[in-house]
């Protein structure tokens, strides 16, 4: 996998909210192998996520990868809260989930999520979609893509 994600700024920060330690590990490994130079912060549930954002309000993450199925506060709740938050609403949010329920996807798109990335079983595929998501996110910045491009395909 060639580095197609060239970071222009040193302080590009990725925040990953996922309660599953394995998934967090896969994500980190993927970023490593993709040779992406970015700062990765991880939180393991919604409460932590919101606390992190509060604490880092002066320097919000460049992008948030948000798992949906989390204890204490679900991803959807967090999405809603963030998008309705006067400071955090600008943070691009990429849904990072195992499921691919179209209804749910529709809901999340309407709630303001930027992209939807499925957690691929095959690691190389996983790397591929993460890479694509980051690239797209960087290109289009805060603009929400058309609905048909919401789900990032391999």
């Amino acid at each position: 996998m060639g580095p197609n994600f060239a970071m222009k700024e040193e302080n590009f920060t990725i925040l990953l909210a996922d309660d599953d330690p394995d998934d967090r590990m896969f994500f980190e490994d993927a970023l490593d192998e993709l040779l992406i130079r970015a700062t990765l912060h991880t939180v393991s549930n919604g409460v932590e996520l919101m606390k992190f954002l509060e604490n880092n309000a002066h320097q919000l993450p460049s992008v948030l990868f948000l798992d949906l199925n989390m204890p204490s506060k679900s991803g959807a709740e967090c999405l809603s809260e963030i998008k309705n938050h006067e400071k955090f609403s600008q943070v691009p949010i990429i849904i990072y989930s195992t499921s691919a329920n179209p209804d749910v996807m529709e809901l999340l798109y309407n709630m303001g999520a930027q992209y939807y990335v499925r957690k691929e079983g095959d690691f190389s595929n996983l790397k591929s979609v993460i890479s694509k998501a980051l690239a797209l996110c960087q290109q289009s910045s805060m603009t929400q893509p058309p609905r048909k491009n919401f789900l990032i395909l391999l």
Binding site: D23, F26, N69, T98, G121
Partner: peptide, 12 residues
């Protein structure tokens, strides 16, 4: 849905 999680991880 929850079954998918561990399965996916096995695949990964």
């Amino acid at each position: 849905h929850d079954l998918q999680e561990p399965l996916r991880k096995i695949q990964t």
